[in-house]
């Protein structure tokens, strides 16, 4: 049986707008103008026990809205949801005992009291026995390395420290299903790695099912075999991550870092007949050429460019996941 069973899930938000002027305000009293925004548009999703699924998409794609519906915070406008065999709204109290949730943007710990007081409270809330708590949380605290933070109030923790505590707090009742909405937002590389290791570990040990949203594709690469790609409320890809890489971009990326500013048209001229896409890089005077073709084409392009424009650095690599996702965001799935 699937842990998450979602069929034709839809969420519409009504946003009211006010008319201008006094007459408008008066009319607003009787009939208000509103627009309907379809944040999640008829998605179907099935997740098996023990899967780790990456849920990605641009800002505003509808990821958080989906998670809120799956956790019972929002009701769907239409569709069927079954999570852990339950309708999140019908049996709220029973249902929420079977899930763990972390919203990276929002703290769920009590701000003014020590972390361990929050833990103690949650232990009571979820009716965890002393033995189960000691055995399970002892390990969680050790793995996340938060022992020294336990007697500090949450408001005095740094973001990374707090996030590790949030994660631990979501696991106090050792739920079989975990929803993580941007759990690594704003964290440094070391903390991110610690969190990834930790998630892998609990997934291995308890077969915990994890649905994770993030804008850091390295999280997905490290954790998830399966990705679900959301665009304007619709699922545009659901499958293996490596398949996505194979299907959508072939060829290579060449990163040039020039000594001087270079114009796009100058570079396009140098491309000759080859199928090259030029894109400005993040660094100063950096240009990235996406080229479809064999090694011959790559080396020809490189030599032509380097002869014309002095460079300080050049790199050739396979398109990264980030590159691929960017491509999909920018050009949609029709391309490639």
């Amino acid at each position: 049986m699937n842990v998450v069973e979602v069929e034709g899930l839809r969420k519409e938000f009504k946003s009211y707008s006010s008319r201008s002027g006094l007459a408008g305000a008066f009319r607003d009293l009787f009939t208000r103008n509103y627009q309907v925004l379809r944040a999640v548009n008829d998605i179907s999703l099935h997740i098996k026990k023990g899967e780790m699924v990456g849920y990605i998409g641009e800002n505003g794609a509808g990821k958080s809205t989906t998670i809120k519906m799956l956790t019972g915070i929002l009701t769907p406008t239409a569709g069927r949801i079954l999570v852990n065999g339950m309708n999140p709204h019908k049996e709220r109290e029973k249902f929420v005992r079977t899930i763990g949730v972390v919203f990276g943007q929002r703290s769920q710990l009590w701000w003014d009291i020590a972390v361990q007081e929050s833990f103690r409270l949650l232990k009571k809330v979820y009716k965890v026995s002393d033995d189960a708590y000691e055995a399970h949380m002892g390990e969680v605290i050790a793995t996340l390395d938060i022992g020294p933070l336990l007697d500090k109030p949450v408001r005095k923790l740094s973001l990374g420290q707090r996030m590790r505590c949030e994660l631990a707090a979501a696991l106090i009742h050792n739920p079989p299903l975990l929803f993580l909405d941007e759990p690594t937002i704003g964290l440094d590389v070391l903390v991110k790695m610690k969190i990834r290791e930790f998630l892998k570990e609990i997934n291995r040990k308890y077969q915990t099912t994890i649905l994770l949203t993030t804008h850091d594709l390295a999280d997905i690469e490290a954790l998830c075999e399966r990705v679900v790609l959301l665009d304007e409320g619709k699922i545009i890809y659901d499958g293996r991550l490596d398949q996505l890489q194979k299907n959508w971009v072939e060829g290579k990326q060449i990163h040039f870092e020039f000594h001087h500013p270079v114009e796009r048209h100058a570079l396009i001229e140098l491309s000759g007949g080859a199928d090259v896409k030029w894109r400005q890089g993040e660094r100063c005077n950096e240009w990235i050429a996406g080229i479809e073709g064999d090694e011959e084409a790559v080396s020809q392009l490189m030599s032509r460019v380097i002869q014309q424009h002095p460079i300080s650095d050049v790199k050739v690599n396979q398109a990264s996941t980030e590159e691929i996702i960017r491509n999909i965001y920018e050009e949609g799935l029709t391309h490639g």
Binding site: G72, V96, F103, V125
Partner: peptide, 12 residues
């Protein structure tokens, strides 16, 4: 602050 919504995921 939208905290009440998040309180809905607690069994109380």
């Amino acid at each position: 602050e939208g905290k009440v919504a998040v309180e809905m995921i607690r069994p109380y």
